[in-house]
Design a protein around this nucleic acid. Structure first.
Lengths: 205, 205
DNA sequence: TAGATTGTTAATCGATTAACAATC
DNA sequence: TAGATTGTTAATCGATTAACAATC
């Protein structure tokens, strides 16, 4: 079972989870590695191999009980609970994230929003009041927050990351278009739409 | 040179390009595979190998002229021009994208925005007027637009994708949290913040 | 039983790394 | 020249796929 799972396998589990949830909402009760693979453009062998790292979740001849597999994957990924997330940056993007309704049923809840511009501090965004950056350490430590999203300009991203890590954050979703330098026990994921667009233009004729 | 470049290599080039631009802005004129690798957490061998697919851009003993390498990578990725992008969805996220200033100097320009809600159509967002979805085909075809961003609810994403592809789009950046079914000559990239968060919680203690 | 599909092993494929001659 | 770094080849490492016995 769970010896040392490759990163790349962990990276696919949320995709499986999303597809399974969709299948469930469409009224399916059971699926197979073939059906899931067809939907995702992944080989059925890979899906079975990936899942086998964590246990035998299926039945020969019939496949996988969808609700059961969803439960198991949520457990593996530790999203069978609600994680509080700190959001730094209350610009257009930060506001859009604050309003986004899609976090809560997938394991996350924004708990606080920070910004250092005087125009933003004190502002009401969704159900939150924007806090100044100098309250970040206290708030994050008090709530024992381990996850943060950075939606500030590139020039500020590294210093914000340093602050967050200092306060105990160990997972960062960085929307600023730059690489962050972090200690080895901190995970970072990046969202840069321009990078993703540039990954496609090469193939356009 | 350019026989059949692995996807994964193409995927790293925009990261190199971003880091090189940053180095340039910091005043550097020359860099090495070691320096770049250190910044990105990538081995120097991999960077040299990746670049060697497209030519010899460096000099033994000294490294890479940054402005030259940037030029070459922009050429390889075909972002040494400005691509017009169609944006579908004028909600919080669509609006944030419309206001984002970071596209233009990296090869992209939003050219039009579509939404099918009566409250949104006709609305002014940034410098755009939101157009109804039934104008999508005409506008996309007229401008010969090849790239689109989808920022609509998950339930609508597949039908919007079908419309876009029908109109000639061949590269889609999908913000809706679901997999799209597209023909093999269409590239899709996905942005789902929850997936990225779920890739990190596994590692939290 | 016949048909289907899992979980796993072994084979294949591809990507990363190490090493070094070439050379600035 | 001495030191540094590239581009490339070969070795290593890891991930994907194919195949199939087990079994529902």
């Amino acid at each position: 079972m769970s010896h040392n799972i490759p990163d790349i396998v962990i990276g696919r589990l949320p995709i499986y989870l999303r597809a399974l949830t969709r299948l469930m909402n469409e009224g399916h009760e059971v699926t197979s590695s073939h059906e899931l693979g067809r939907r995702l453009g992944i080989s059925s062998a890979q899906i079975r191999k990936d899942l086998s790292h964590f246990g035998g979740f299926g039945k020969q001849g019939t496949g996988y009980q969808i609700t059961y597999l969803i439960d198991q994957l949520r457990q593996v990924l530790k999203v069978n609970r609600e994680w509080e997330v700190a959001l730094v940056g209350a610009g257009d993007l930060g506001s859009a994230l604050a309003h986004y309704r899609g976090f809560s049923d997938r394991g996350f809840r924004i708990a606080c929003i920070f910004d250092n511009s005087p125009q933003k501090v004190g502002k009401q965004i969704s159900t939150f009041t924007v806090q100044p950056l100098n309250e970040l350490s206290n708030t994050v430590e008090e709530h024992n927050i381990r996850i943060a999203m950075i939606a500030v300009p590139a020039e500020k991203a590294q210093e914000v990351a340093d602050l967050l890590i200092q306060a105990g954050v160990r997972a960062i979703l960085n929307y600023a278009p730059m690489n962050l330098n972090v200690p080895p026990d901190v995970r970072v994921q990046y969202i840069d739409p321009v990078v993703q667009l540039q990954r496609m233009t090469f193939y356009l004729t």
